[in-house]
C-alpha cells in the first residue's frame, strides 16, 4: 500500500510541474486582465525551442531559451491585445494555431514527423536524508523544476498579495481606469504580466521536453495548456488555488495511469475516458455552481481605452 502511494506521489510530482507553471502563467496574465487562451501555444513554443536548443546547449540553458521564446510569443499577444486592441480571445486562439502549425512544420522540416532526436534530460536530484523516510522519499529523483514547481506558487502568491507591485496588478485587472488616474501605466503593467506569464508557461512547456521526456514530440503539449486554464478557473484565479487544482489534476492523472497498469479491473468499471474527462467536467461544475464568471477579475478581456473612461 505504502509503495503504491509512493509510486503515485512520484508520478504526480513528475506530471504536475508543467501544469503548475502553465497555470501560474495564465493566472498572472489574467489577474492583470488579459485573457490567456494562448497558454497552449506558449507551452508548445517552450517545449519545442527548449528541445531544439538543448541539441547544442547545456539543457538548463536551453530551458531558459525556451522560456524566452514563449515570452516573445506572449509579447505578440500583448502587442495585439493591448496596443492594437485585437480581441484577446481571437488573438490567443490565433497564436495557438500558429504555434501548432509552425512547430509541426519546423519539426518535420528539420527533424522527423514524430519528434526531435533525444537530448540530455535535466539531471535528477534527491536528498539522501529522505531516502529512509517512507512516503517522503518519493520526493527524490526529480529535476530541480519539480522543486521549483512546489515553491513558485508561494512566491507568486507573495508577489501578488504582499507586494506593492502585486497590489497594482490586482487593481489593474479589476479597475484599470482607477490605476490609470493614479499615474500608473495600465498597458505597461499588463504587458509585464503577459510577458511574465509567457515565461512561466514557456517553462511549463520546457518541462515536458526536458524533464518529463527527453525530446519534443509532435503532439506536445496535447491540451495541457487548456487543462492549465481549467486549473486556473478551478483555483479561482489565485496562485495557490491554481497550484492546488493543478496538483489535484496531476494526481488524478497519475492515479489513472497507475490503475491502468496495476489494476486494470477498476478501469472496466470506470473507463479511462471518463476519468480523463473529469478535470474538465469538474471545472464546469464549479463554474456552474458559482454562476457568472466565478472569481474572474472584473476587467478580464476588456481593452482599456484611456480616452473613453
Amino acid at each position: 500500500m505504502l509503495e503504491l502511494l509512493e509510486a503515485l506521489l512520484a508520478s504526480t510530482l513528475d506530471y504536475a510541474p508543467a501544469l503548475v507553471f502553465a497555470a501560474l502563467g495564465a493566472t498572472l496574465s489574467e489577474r492583470a486582465g488579459v485573457v490567456s487562451l494562448h497558454v497552449e501555444g506558449l507551452m508548445r513554443t517552450g517545449a519545442f525551442v527548449a528541445a531544439v536548443a538543448a541539441l547544442s546547449l547545456p539543457t538548463p540553458l536551453a530551458v531558459c531559451v525556451g522560456m524566452a521564446a514563449a515570452a516573445a510569443v506572449a509579447g505578440v499577444h500583448a502587442l495585439l491585445s493591448l496596443r492594437l486592441r485585437a480581441d484577446q480571445v481571437i488573438s490567443g486562439m490565433a497564436l495557438n494555431l500558429v504555434a501548432l502549425s509552425l512547430f509541426s512544420f519546423l519539426l518535420e522540416a528539420r527533424f522527423s514527423p514524430t519528434g526531435t532526436p533525444p537530448i540530455a534530460q535535466l539531471s535528477r536530484h534527491g536528498l539522501p536524508a529522505l531516502e529512509g523516510v517512507p512516503l517522503l522519499r518519493a520526493l527524490n529523483g526529480h529535476t530541480a523544476l519539480t522543486w521549483l514547481a512546489l515553491a513558485l506558487p508561494f512566491a507568486l502568491s507573495f508577489l501578488l498579495y504582499r507586494t506593492a507591485w502585486g497590489l497594482r496588478v490586482r487593481a489593474v485587472g479589476e479597475a484599470p481606469a482607477a490605476v490609470a488616474t493614479l499615474g500608473v501605466s495600465v498597458a505597461g503593467l499588463r504587458a509585464a504580466c503577459v510577458v511574465g506569464g509567457g515565461l512561466l508557461a514557456g517553462l511549463g512547456g520546457a518541462v515536458l521536453s526536458t524533464s518529463t521526456l527527453d525530446r519534443f514530440e509532435q503532439h506536445m503539449p496535447a491540451g495541457l495548456g487548456f487543462m492549465a486554464l481549467a486549473a486556473m478557473v478551478f483555483g479561482r484565479w489565485s496562485p495557490l488555488g491554481a497550484f492546488g487544482a493543478a496538483v489535484f489534476f496531476a494526481a488524478g492523472n497519475a492515479l489513472r495511469v497507475g490503475l491502468a497498469s496495476s489494476a486494470p479491473g477498476v478501469l472496466a468499471v470506470v473507463p479511462q475516458g471518463v476519468l480523463m474527462a473529469l478535470p474538465y467536467a469538474l471545472t464546469l461544475g464549479v463554474l456552474a455552481v458559482q454562476g457568472g464568471r466565478g472569481q474572474a477579475p472584473a476587467a478580464l478581456g476588456q481593452p482599456y481605452d484611456p480616452e473613453h473612461r
Binding site: F226, V233, Y280, A281, L287, A288, G292
Partner: peptide, 22 residues
C-alpha cells in the same frame, strides 16, 4: 448560470475528446 462560453466550450471539447476517443 452565466458561465462564459469560451471557458465552457474549451472544457467541453476535452470532455468530448476523452469520452469519444478514449
Amino acid at each position: 448560470r452565466g458561465v462564459h462560453e469560451v471557458i465552457s466550450t474549451i472544457m467541453l471539447n476535452w470532455v468530448a475528446v476523452a469520452l469519444v476517443e478514449n
